[in-house]
Amino acid sequence: MTSETAYLLYFAFALGGAGVYFLLPRGAETRPTVGALFGAGSLIALLLVLSTRVITPDHTTYYFYLFSTLAIASAVRVITHPRPVYSALYFILVVVSVAALLVLLEAEFLAVAAIIVYAGAIMVTYLFVIMLAQQSSTPHYDSRSREPLLAVMIGFILMAAIATRAADITTSHTATNQSRPHAASPVMLVTDSATDESLAGNDKAKPVGNTLLVAASIMTRYVVVLEIAGVLLLVSMVGAIALSRKRVPMEGYRPAVTPLGQIGKEVEPF
């Protein structure tokens, strides 16, 4: 990574931070137009950074730009929208866009898993709570963000640091591969050579699917993590069932003094 592109990257993050700062809800002081302009500038700067490393643009490249722009814009709206329901919906849009990016990387399993877990289960629960909590009006603690400057600075400095490091990694990766990363490579990276061989011996006629590779890696290298996560989830599920079984006696409940008649047996139905 050259120093020019690094400075361009920092510049993009500075612009983005300024944009988010102006977009954050602060009542009448919010400057959505200014924020949007800064944000657009930041995206253009990011585009310039990326344009230094795209080797051969094909049709998936445009999808990449479309969905990543959508993901970034929706992510900004998640934190800047004053109404929590819309924030949650924008988060779903982020998840769906990221899933589309994963599909472009031919990591369909991760894409669908992200949708099922985040969009299908977690966000439904969030939405459920948000909707129960407030119906229509936006209270002041939602319409004003606290410490917008500090939050934006910390967040974007952190993001710049991560992005610079990540850009370095991908640079070295593309340098060794000399082409666009192979289809299943994001998953291939975490697969043992031993499992590769066992998979190859398994069924040669069928193409080795991405799901199979994910399964192979989590069942070999990451099996302890999987077991721990599984036990944790099982415990929480058992806990949920146990909670739903608990019966709380009603306060002020008066038990019947006389034996109850039964409809249809001792008493004619109404």
Binding site: A256, T258, L260, G261, Q262, I263, G264, K265, V267
Partner: peptide, 9 residues
Amino acid sequence: ILELSEPSL
């Protein structure tokens, strides 16, 4: 007044 319950199944 007779209090009623569901028939037991």
